[in-house]
Design a protein around this nucleic acid. Structure first.
Lengths: 189, 189
DNA sequence: GTATTTTATTGATCCTGATCAAGAAATCAA
DNA sequence: TTGATTTCTTGATCAGGATCAATAAAATAC
């Protein structure tokens, strides 16, 4: 059950066998049905998910009541509502399983305990934060420099599985354009 | 010369006096003239700046040749071209002193040495990364949820000193709108 | 202090992507 | 399977902000 997670961690940081086991023991299995919410805005519960199988979508509700997708996460990656995880505040975003998913989650308090008890876990977290920052910065840059068509073409080039695997509606939402606009972009080549 | 920096650090993390002195000894003074570039895209040099006095602007050049402002930083804050600092890659952004500025900088290699030698410096860096992530996420959210007028109003509410202190041209660039649009927004109330 | 350059304002026009609407296709429930 | 719901496509219209242009104001240089 923990093979993929073990590989993910050991690819990034060196841990003793005992420490690795302690880390793994903090993760719990969660099977989520398609469209199930595994985190809801307003809840205090803050978990970090590792995706064994399936796909998560993190989104928030805009002032006008519509959804805005922050990101998707697929197999063999971590996902959390990081702003709340960092601050220990109530969740500001929903986390939804887009497909039937198999998740391993760790609670925020256990995660922070590991930072103090497992040498090397702080390096893991630092790497996670750095990656999250760089990803976010790139996404912001894409919004600032590219128009909707260019954003779609970039996504298709760099993340074709997103376009292939997800319904248009969600791809459009991720690109912050309407379904209609995406449909026209796709047909226009 | 190091009072402001000392306060900034000790407000955030506990260090022994000796460790604090070692940290401070890594910082060097740089006086920058108005409009001077203290970091240039393409350079290998990667410094992190603490601003004693003045203002820095980090910007990159878009594919169409125009500038896009990533952020401004004022007195008593740190600023760096963080994506390059993290990756150890060539700078992708220019860093410009908007006003005559008094800066303290630390080189990337010294910064990373401190991570291994000063207990507590890793906590400082973690806090820096977390803050950078949260700020960036908020900025991205603002672009996704707000139109130009609303972005300006938000900036005026949350960061009035930016609007008062910086020329319209730069405020407009930061908001990713044209000077003309900002001028009309301002006159329209 | 004057000349030059840069920045700010205002007007006219244009264009991209949103909105509204309707029908087709696909998905889901049972 | 069949019916219901959701998603996708295509068309017509609209609006916000970009662009281009010209003048005014301010900042800077000498």
């Amino acid at each position: 059950m923990h093979e993929q997670l073990t590989k993910f961690i050991t690819d990034r940081v060196q841990l003793s066998e005992a420490d690795l086991q302690q880390v793994l023991s903090c993760f719990h299995l969660l099977e989520a049905k398609k469209n199930e919410l595994v985190g809801r805005a307003g809840e205090p519960s803050r978990r970090m998910f590792f995706i064994n199988k399936g796909c998560l979508r993190v989104y928030f509700i805009k002032p006008d009541g519509r959804e805005a997708t922050r990101r998707f996460a697929f197999e063999n990656s971590f996902s959390t509502s990081l702003t709340s995880f960092i601050g220990g505040t109530l969740l500001k975003e929903d986390t939804q399983a887009i497909e039937r998913s198999e998740l391993l989650y760790i609670n925020r308090e256990d995660f922070y305990d590991l930072l103090n008890t497992i040498p090397g876990w702080d390096i893991f977290y630092r790497g996670f934060l750095e990656y999250a920052y760089v990803s976010n910065t790139k996404r912001l840059e894409d919004f600032i420099t590219l128009n909707p068509r260019e954003r779609y073409q970039l996504l298709l080039r760099e993340n074709p599985q997103m376009v292939l695997r997800l319904p248009n509606k969600l791809v459009a939402n991720y690109l912050n354009i309407t379904q209609e606009a995406l449909s026209r972009i796709k047909s226009d080549i």
